[in-house]
Nucleic acid binder design. Structure first.
Lengths: 243, 243
DNA sequence: TTCTGGTATTTGGTATGCCAAAAATATTCG
DNA sequence: CGAATATTTTTGGCATACCAAATACCAGAA
């Protein structure tokens, strides 16, 4: 039945197309719990507290007002994401990555982003590329990024996500977002550092220029080297953040 | 209690260090179910059957001899992996990727592998790089890959996995393996194609040569272009595989 | 006081049972 | 006979109860 049949004389009322208010089953408790726990974990700043953070199924189920079943399913999903690790008969620990792991992740990020840059040079529209500059329109010689670190940090993340999105590659987008969720944890403590922030903006602009010039190789190289630079920075200056 | 106390006169027996046979809790039903289902899905050749494959919780729990609870947790994990998608009150469907999605995945693979190649040129040992040739030692002018497609296909996958492993980057390894699991489904129908197989071997050897020469940029380029070539091939010749 | 042994408690793992929505099937009416 | 409708069945979602392992706690002995 490809098209909608137009009944000529509706007996009682004109059946459909009247504000179908999204009967959608809303999302299940399992998914709600997943989102809630994920957000909670991401904003708890794991690297600030010295002792390892643990979760308790029963406490969570009570807090969220649901039974343990959907909680456990959500935990299983979070474990697949690498955010928690459940130890049988011991508890559920929120995973803390080591510096080495973070550097490793950032390298993967660099790989994905450089591929995105490559694709963008061949498919993205000029106006969309140029629009990337808008993320930094509030910064310049009279308003230095290093003087508004927090704000610049947000713009930085937004820029990278927008950049990846331009590749129109769902896989690259999803994989990068996953990585960013893990790396973002101490973004404030690394990307936000003033010394690095100073070099960040020009590099971003240089990437945009290469993209506009449709210079595939150069765009790829600049995107890669930029993020690889962050990796090197974390590797060199991030020890104090980890145990 | 840092060190072990050496009792001078053990009354009945010399307590420990006598074959502690790993009391390990083995793995939970949840994990067993996860592994079992994952393997089953991977080997069922989803793209061969026309109608969409569906799973039934109760049937699975009966088949595996466990209750629905661990099955549901395993399903939740598989859904995170993108292997299945559960539709409320409808069923659990085994996800079939479109050609576009597969091409997209292969591009991400190319990105990760080229980064691996880059890292390898700076850290891997010469002998480990050279050892990569062993995967193809059974093929040559007298024994062409295109005449032993199935066998070459296995060697091909093994080579790529070994290559990534040489990067000593767990993140790259894991992400690539995830992708390979999805792409592998119709490996036989794409990578195995004779026309492509013919060009594959020389390209592999060229990658190895660049790695041995420690030519970072060249190794990266060759690794990238090789896998990107596969993506282009699938994009051009893979229509008949998808609906 | 300190060490030892045992007991109560905590915690994740698993099995079951029931619910509601959706689909499949049967039934009734025009 | 056909379509609208009522009924049964199927299926995932969720709550609950119980288990065993690991731990925490406590009393008694040295």
């Amino acid at each position: 039945m490809p098209a909608r049949k137009e009944t000529k004389a509706p007996p009682v009322m004109a059946d459909a197309d009247i504000a179908i208010v999204r009967i959608a089953p809303e999302t299940s408790f399992k998914n709600k719990a997943y989102e809630a726990l994920k957000e909670a974990i991401l904003k708890m700043d794991i690297y600030a507290t010295p002792e390892q953070v643990m979760l308790d199924e029963r406490a969570l189920s009570e807090r969220l007002g649901v039974s343990r079943t959907p909680i456990r399913e959500a935990i299983a999903m979070l474990e697949q994401d690498g955010f928690v690790k459940t130890v049988p008969r011991r508890g559920i620990v929120v995973v803390r990555r080591t510096k080495t792991e973070i550097v490793d992740m950032i390298r993967a990020w660099a790989a994905l982003e450089s591929m995105a840059a490559r694709l963008i040079t061949t498919t993205a529209r000029k106006k969309d590329i140029t629009a990337l500059r808008d993320f930094f329109k509030d910064f310049g010689k009279d308003r230095l990024p290093q003087d508004h670190v927090e704000e610049y940090s947000k713009a930085n993340i937004a820029f990278h996500q927008a950049l990846i999105s331009l590749s129109e590659s769902p896989v690259l987008v999803d994989m990068t977002n996953d990585i960013l969720l893990h790396v973002r944890g101490y973004r404030q403590l690394t990307i936000g550092r003033k010394d690095r922030t100073a070099t960040s903006l020009p590099e971003h602009l240089a990437i945009i220029e290469a993209l506009e010039a449709r210079d595939t190789e150069l765009a790829e190289k600049r995107a890669r080297d930029h993020t690889l630079g962050l990796a090197a920075y974390v590797e060199a200056h991030g020890q104090e953040l980890f145990s």
